[in-house]
Design a binder for these strands. Structure first.
Lengths: 116, 116
DNA sequence: TTGATGTTTCCATATTTCGAAAAATATGGA
DNA sequence: TCCATATTTTTCGAAATATGGAAACATCAA
């Protein structure tokens, strides 16, 4: 992932509504949620929500898909993963001992294990 | 970590110079780098660099420490780790299978293993 | 104290971002 | 086609942020 893409992604997430949208969409995986439904659930005007969704889309963090009259948005977990790796990679290169705990904190999330 | 803190951190990293500063500081761990040296290495005027460093400081991503006439900045890896967890936690809650690969990609970074 | 060095603050200007209302566009059903 | 619904685009002022020169502040050596 390129620097400009990472900046765009961070920039997209550095806003209350957009962060809330993304987190909500993550929880809605893999079904996604329509733009109007997102606006309703987060109490944001449709036009405002649309603008935020276009920012998230441009950043690659969400992916739209038309379904009849609605446009369903899904979180792009792959993209998020790459952005995280972009940070973590540097972290590892300079200082391996930092990533140990992080890796451990994630190990509980693998499909073949229960989360606490 | 609270939402507002995460937003502040993402916002701080969503800027070319600051992202470069942070990555540079990560690689300089645990020694850190003086403000003037950062400005020189990244070819940024002192005043501009100072402003960016204060943003990163306020976000908690870097920590200043005076050493004689210089002010040494270090990356706050712990803070970065928490911010990453903030995203990953949600990711796990909704969709465990996403975190498996991420955890694996980090597992090579643990201190007791070589990196490729 | 004086001078040299390193860093931050002050300030003005330029740019970007935000939120919301109005208008425009796209889809599906009658 | 015409209408209703869903979404996006356009537009605007207000607020926040980026930039860099000059001045101020802090520290150390002599």
């Amino acid at each position: 992932m390129e620097t400009s893409s990472v900046i765009e992604s961070f920039s997209a997430l550095a806003q209350e509504t957009r962060l809330a949208v993304f987190r909500l969409l993550v929880r809605q995986e893999p079904d996604g949620l329509a733009a109007g439904e997102l606006a309703r659930q987060l109490s944001v005007p449709h036009a405002t929500m649309s603008a935020h969704l276009s920012v998230l889309s441009r950043a690659g963090l969400v992916v739209p898909r038309r379904q009849g009259r609605s446009i369903i948005y899904r979180a792009n977990l792959n993209h998020m993963q790459e952005a995280i790796r972009f940070l973590v990679r540097d972290c590892c290169a300079g200082h391996p001992e930092v990533c140990g705990p992080l890796a451990e904190s994630l190990s509980g999330c693998t499909p073949n294990q229960d989360r606490e």
